[in-house]
Simulated scan of single mutants.
Amino acid sequence: MALKGKINVLVVDDSAVVRQTLQQILQSDSQIGEVVTAGDPYAATEKLESFVPDVITLDVEMPRMDGLTFLKKLMSQHPIPVVMCSSLTIDNSETFMKALEYGAVDIIQKPSLGTKQFLEEAKTRICDTVKAAASVNMKTHRARFKPMQVAPKLTADVILAKGNESNKAMAKTTEKVVLVGASTGGTEALRVFLEMFPEDSPGIVVVQHMPENFTKSFAERLDSLCRITVKEGENGDTVLPGRAIIAPGNKHMLIKRSGARYYVEIKDGPLVSRHRPSVDVLFRSGARYVGANAIGVIMTGMGDDGAKGMLEMKEAGAYTIAQDEATSVVFGMPKVAIQIGAVNDIAPLEKICQMVMGAYRGRR
């Protein structure tokens, strides 16, 4: 793990254009140092004899050896944070779900031509993802493995425009909603968290930083493992007990209220706190429309997305929990939320569900 100095990166991709583009993007960031490239896993193995990277970006489909095979060998012999690099099509989403299960810490989209805004967002996402990967506690990350069974930093104000004030949060009632935010390391943390919930759990709404086309497979995987129902969010979905809704990749998700019914709204918009979906957008909508009926949970992840939104939730009467440092793959988002006074309690991952259910059943 890179603690001091600049982050060194090994880019493994059979496309010379992709290698060159990633190298240029990464070297444009002042926190990233040497960027070495390799055309396939065999070439990467030779590079690793003399170059020790803090992060590896890895393509899946390559000659001589595919990325998944190389990833498994790497994790068993020389665990280094690996970010999978993909064209992000629906067809390969299952493959990349396997990559996360095998030990990859995140997924990024291969850079491609597009509008200036798209290119700037791609640059921001790629550099931020690689820097987050360099902060990963690999010991904690590997313990979670489970086999298959630079843009402006905008605030949530750009998504949460002033609306109908009559639909703001009601006074505290017995109907509670759990709002969850996570980033790097969150795919496995959410699996651990959601698998613990009984069928009579409160409704759960989740933002996990994840690219477009992958959240559907992620939700389906969780649905197959959990007692509760898990689905990718669609505009207008009702928040129901015993169901978790995962924000779709590349879309913001808010929670709203109509009478006594809570539902999600899916929206386009710019990056917020450098992300889309943004935890801040979800949490601030929770403060506005759910208020004291909300239970907020902030989990592993780099940066500060969700911290300010969680503070607003707490000030609105919500009960808020942060994952502790010992069980976080990256203790960034929870740390900032704790530092600004947004958190009621701090707990290890395995205890958070119990605390949520206690609050839901009125034992807090």
Rank of each mutant, 00 (worst) to 15 (best):
V17D: 13
Q20I: 09
D40Q: 05
A43L: 12
A43Q: 15
T45G: 14
I56F: 02
M62Q: 03
M62C: 02
G67E: 11
K73R: 10
L74F: 11
H78W: 06
S86W: 06
N92S: 14
K98I: 12
A99C: 13
A104F: 04
D106E: 14
Q109G: 15
T115W: 06
K116H: 03
K123H: 09
A132R: 11
A134L: 06
P147Y: 03
P152I: 05
A156Q: 05
A156V: 03
V158M: 06
E165G: 04
N167A: 08
K172G: 04
T187A: 15
R191S: 09
F193S: 10
M196S: 15
P198Y: 15
P202Y: 04
V206F: 01
Q208V: 12
T215F: 02
K216D: 06
G236I: 06
I245Q: 00
G249P: 10
M253W: 00
I255E: 01
I266P: 00
P270N: 07
H275W: 06
D280K: 07
A287K: 03
V297S: 03
A318T: 10
Y319D: 04
T320L: 05
A322R: 02
D324M: 11
M333C: 09
Q339E: 15
I340L: 09
N344H: 15
A359L: 11
G362E: 08
